[in-house]
Computed example of a mutant assay.
Amino acid sequence: MTTSTINSQKPSDDLGDSKLKLQDIIKTLPKECFELNHRKAWTGAVINVLMVGLGYASIAFSPWYLLPLAWVFAGTALTGFFVIGHDCGHRSFAKSRWVNDLVGHLAFMPLIYPFHSWRIKHNHHHLHTNKLDEDNAWHPIRPEFYETWPKLDKSVFEVLMRKRLWWLSSILHWANLHFDWRQYRKQDQSDVKLSVAVVVTFAAIAFPTLIITTGVWGFIKFWFVPWLVYHFWMSTFTLVHHTDPEIPFLPGSEWNAAIAQLSGSVHCDYPRWVEFLCHDINVHVPHHVSTAIPSYNLRLAHRSLQENWGSYLREERFSLSLMRRITDQCHFYSLGEGYFSFKDYYARK
């Protein structure tokens, strides 16, 4: 792991109680980081639509042996749709709420992702990043909780992690958390029902139309496989952003928002074409410092954090060795001990 040490701030391995406040960090960021630029926002959206269109054209015209490349490109471009909706969910795409809601729903529709359901759950994640038993986006499994699970749930979790099928995790998260409005507060349920209705209506029209015009193989070819690629990136981004053998999760009594957002989330460099299609969502630390920073200003904000808070930052480069380290070691978590693997878990029993 490469950790920036540009300044002499408090070292990043001390993530517990601190007097540092999130506002102290935000004050050091250039004001330009928070400025909404309608031209950049809409240009990014138009380019994303063109890239998705190019992806589907490549699927339509590619010979069978080039289809995997076309699928990867189209699915990655679809992930860009999610990032645009992600900005909308944080109200950093446009100043008007109704524009954010409209664009957010349109961006999420092809992904069959209910916009308001995700927005509400995701905002909870930002309020409780790396807080033990509270962070709902990605949190470690505590062995005492694991032992209370049904056998089926245990088996699914073990297969996902031992067989390195982390890339399916986002699908389980999507299915379990975003369609049941009863999981939400009463004042949010009408928004959740609206978003569920939008994607169900889209699927009810688009899927039969696709099958009628292109057959079942067309449905698999044009929607299902690119959708799986999209979930690969969603699972990977989420896992890498918030999981590392050295990142602690702390109980609320010891948790500090400023430290958690700076050192509990990871900046990871991916191939540049991935970063371009996904609107720099990999530049993740400034997004946790302030969700008001739009995606096109994340790099500017990150450079400022490197200059002013470098010793807190965790920076990685995407690689197979990185994924092996995470999926081999980060299975269970215990307070005072940190992460440990299935092998260690069963050795203690």
Rank of each mutant, 00 (worst) to 15 (best):
T3N: 12
D13H: 14
D13A: 12
D17H: 12
K21I: 09
I25D: 08
I26Q: 10
L29T: 08
K31G: 09
C33I: 06
E35C: 04
L36S: 09
T43D: 10
T43H: 02
N48D: 06
M51G: 03
M51R: 02
G53H: 06
A57M: 06
I59Y: 10
F61N: 03
V72P: 00
F73Y: 15
A74M: 06
G75M: 08
H90N: 09
S92E: 11
K95W: 05
S96P: 12
V99Q: 11
A107R: 12
I120M: 06
H122Q: 12
N123C: 05
H124E: 06
E134Q: 01
E134M: 12
R142T: 03
P150W: 07
L152R: 14
R162E: 15
K163L: 15
A175Y: 02
Q183E: 08
D191R: 15
D191M: 12
K193H: 06
S195M: 14
V196A: 13
A197Q: 11
P208G: 05
T209P: 09
I212F: 13
T214E: 03
W223H: 14
L228D: 00
Y230H: 10
M234V: 01
S235Q: 02
L239K: 04
P245K: 04
F249G: 00
G252F: 01
S253A: 03
E254N: 04
N256M: 09
I259W: 07
Q261K: 15
E275Y: 08
L277A: 07
V283E: 05
L298H: 08
R303Q: 14
S304T: 00
L313K: 04
R314C: 00
E316H: 08
R317H: 05
L320S: 08
S321Q: 02
R325Q: 11
D328C: 09
F332D: 08
S334K: 11
G336V: 06
G336D: 02
G338F: 00
S341W: 03
